[in-house]
Design a protein around this nucleic acid. Structure first.
Lengths: 267, 267
DNA sequence: GCGATTTGTCTCTTACAAAAGACACATGTA
DNA sequence: TACATGTGTCTTTTGTAAGAGACAAATCGC
């Protein structure tokens, strides 16, 4: 049974990026992969499957998971076979929030905004070179507009992405954006130069609107939140039906920009 | 200036448990210590100090911190010297919340409760054998009653502790409670057997009140939240001034028990 | 019922990560 | 000006953690 049917056999391709070319991987890296895997999985998973998922030896995975469970970063689910994130990660996460004015106030503003407008509202940031929905508040529309906290989407698909990249070098942007990212969900392919032009435009206008990029039914309105140094730290955005009238979106953009500006003021 | 005033000098006592007697420590363990250290520190810290704080070699600490920063678990603070928790930990924390009904609804109930009563309200759980304030909502009193999310307090000092330990073996309880834990802040020493008796009482009465244990000015009212299996999963509690009249506390306890019971019902 | 698969634990080996330490460069301060 | 003290990056050494593999026990599939 030592033939080629096992997942671990070849470095052919892991689920995501695997350059596990050789052999021995640092334990910490394995752990980081485990956490990331659980993050995309979004639910408890058996240790065996976890080992497959991150393409790690079973024995190693058992050892690491035990450490993590003991430390409280992971928790055993009910039956004691599956694992998922643990309380400690929640506590560390709250520590992060406490130490981060922008996030704390941003969450508040987003909640307010979606309550006032009835639309889905989000706070977005760059997270190690990726666009990330850091907080979102659903809005009151009957059909649920997609978007969950922690979701990561290619930068070129979003209005926020065009704002967040303001001020970056072309080379840097090129590094952050893969070829796949430029292929929109509807099949169209965006040119990198066009995207960079969009970024420049968004920078000067001070807001950004995209229509039907992530999906064909929604429009995304975004406004930048600046740090004291003038860098774009985050964006606030509203997700509305694509057929929303211009007067309405103008109104929303104005509101959004006002709130984003308020967030930009420290304290 | 290399005398005994510095935190790092001797392995005499680390902040927590240190048996770093020997030499080569697993990288993952170092990381876990780093995270825990940041958690108790509650603010960004220089890498050098961090190395001292966790009693790890400087070179190693630099390497590990770099990995963690690259992974987004930690972030460099402003000037680029100090580090603290990163966005990724926040995201993982939110994943935990999403996968955990009890916590999600518990936070909600706590917020409601403190708004309705005006008192400080908390959701508490056991976290690797320690009492932990998982969520707290301040209340409206002029003087701020202490208590922060993530704070860990010896079990015997709290009303919640007496409820959370219901159903545990005496031996298990003994393991969870150190001698220091039994020494109350006011100098009195609690006998382990008395504490265990308290636990039994709390179990039968279905709530617990302690007066002036953590500090001399407050009373703590707590009620248990049960899992489907009947185990005490968490407690909700209210922190009120110690001179609160009995009629008032009776009323609050009734409310608390009702809400805690509601939380116990799954879904 | 009986193979086939999965799970959790253990042992042994060696590739390599943790640690020591040297370095260059900032600071601060006597 | 010299002198301590802290910071960030190297290189080298070696103790050990990651990994392979074997196992019994549990679970599945029919």
């Amino acid at each position: 049974m030592q033939d080629a049917n096992d997942v671990t056999d070849q470095p052919v391709l892991g689920p995501a990026a695997e350059r596990t070319s050789g052999s021995r991987e640092k334990g910490l890296n394995r752990v980081l992969e485990i956490l990331e895997f659980l993050h995309v999985t979004q639910r408890a998973i058996g240790i065996g499957d976890l080992a497959k998922g991150v393409n790690a030896p079973r024995s190693t995975t058992y050892t690491l998971v035990r450490s993590l469970v003991d430390a409280g970063l992971l928790e055993m689910e009910g039956d004691g076979n599956r694992v998922y994130f643990g309380k400690k990660l929640y506590l560390y996460g709250m520590d992060y929030v406490r130490g981060n004015d922008l996030l704390r106030r941003g969450r508040q503003e987003v909640d307010n905004l979606s309550r006032e407008t009835g639309e889905t509202s989000e706070l977005c940031m760059l997270q190690s070179g990726r666009y990330t929905i850091v907080h979102s508040s659903p809005g009151t529309r009957p059909f649920r507009i997609s978007s969950a906290t922690g979701l990561q989407i290619p930068l070129p698909w979003t209005a926020s992405g065009r704002l967040l990249l303001a001020g970056f070098e072309k080379a840097t942007i090129q590094d952050m954006v893969s070829d796949d990212d430029l292929l929109l969900p509807d099949g169209r392919r965006l040119q990198l130069d066009d995207f960079i032009a969009d970024i420049a435009t968004a920078r000067t206008t001070g807001y950004c609107i995209t229509s039907g990029l992530v999906d064909a039914y929604t429009k995304c309105l975004a406004a930048p939140v600046f740090s004291v140094t003038g860098k774009v730290e985050a964006t606030m955005c509203l997700v509305v039906p694509i057929d929303t009238a211009k007067e309405k979106t103008d109104e929303l953009i104005a509101l959004l920009r006002e709130r984003a500006a308020r967030l930009s003021i420290p304290g």
